[in-house]
Amino acid sequence: MKKLPPWGWAVIVLLLVLLFNLVKTPGFFEFHVRDGRIYGSLIDILNRATPVLLLSLGMTLVIATGGVDLSVGAVMAMTGATAACLIAQPTNSPLSSINVHQSIPQIIVISLFVALLCGTFNGMLVSWLGLQPIVATLLLMVAGRGIAQLLSNGQIITFQFPAFQAIGNGGTLGLPNPMWIGVIVACLFGLLVRGTALGLFVSAVGSNPIAAKNSGINPGRVKMVAYVLTALCAGIAGIIGTADIQAADATNAGLNLELDAILAVSVGGTFSNSGRFSIFGSVVGAILMQTLTTTILTRGVSADATLIIKAIVVVTVCLLQSPEFRNLFSKLGSFVPKKSGGVA
């Protein structure tokens, strides 16, 4: 049997879910054009998958270098709060002294700068101080939400700014903007890891940091790049989220999305310390997560079941990838005599 690529199982499960919908959910594959926009379940899935997709792109690199980034949800909250404060100019916010006069490029640059700072902070803790990634990023996960609340003075900041809102809920060429952003960032990541040496470095650091160091790679710098890229992705996701709901909610923005992203990456065949990672797998993983959610909702099953089903699917896909699990099955299979078996 030819060996499946790491993302193989995720693709198979995604196809199975789609097949299930083809048979069971009428209208799942239909598209409508209204006001120059294309609507349909599939478009909706891709649109809603964007935040998790963005997070999982960066998370892939972080997990491949043997780490994990728990702070992405909090970084989303911080960038979202920054953007909203710059637009709405609330009086009690520490950011009220900065007036960007509703310039969208400035809003985006300043918000992403906040994300960049967060990523650098995580990267410094992990690569320079050598802290365990789980706790190093736990710091910002706990404190970050506090900082986001500090920025917005504990309130939900709302604003009316149609040009900025278009980032989250507008459309271009008939397709929603978040989807375009997701596609563009995913392609950039693909180019970055396959077109430059970064992908090779990440694999090297992930599989054996000492060997990587001896062959002239600086593991610290590679990890730093991974954490900064992840935070930037989280920043973009945060801006999209804020623009979509025209508000910044420091407590709930991006809540638990770090978990979705980690699950998406793992389902996509990226495991820590293996040096093996797949950007494509993570994209499939993120879409699979959203397809599951949408399928469950359209089937009329209560939304709570989503969590249970996600957990079961993730454990199953990861088990299928685990060598021990396959050995167990080949052992069971060996009771049946095969063409070249141990039956003497």
Partner: peptide, 21 residues
Amino acid sequence: FSLPPFLVTLAGLFFCRGVAL
């Protein structure tokens, strides 16, 4: 099955919260 602990228990987190809801 040598699955990473944070992944397994993350799935456990989702599962328990789902059962609770």
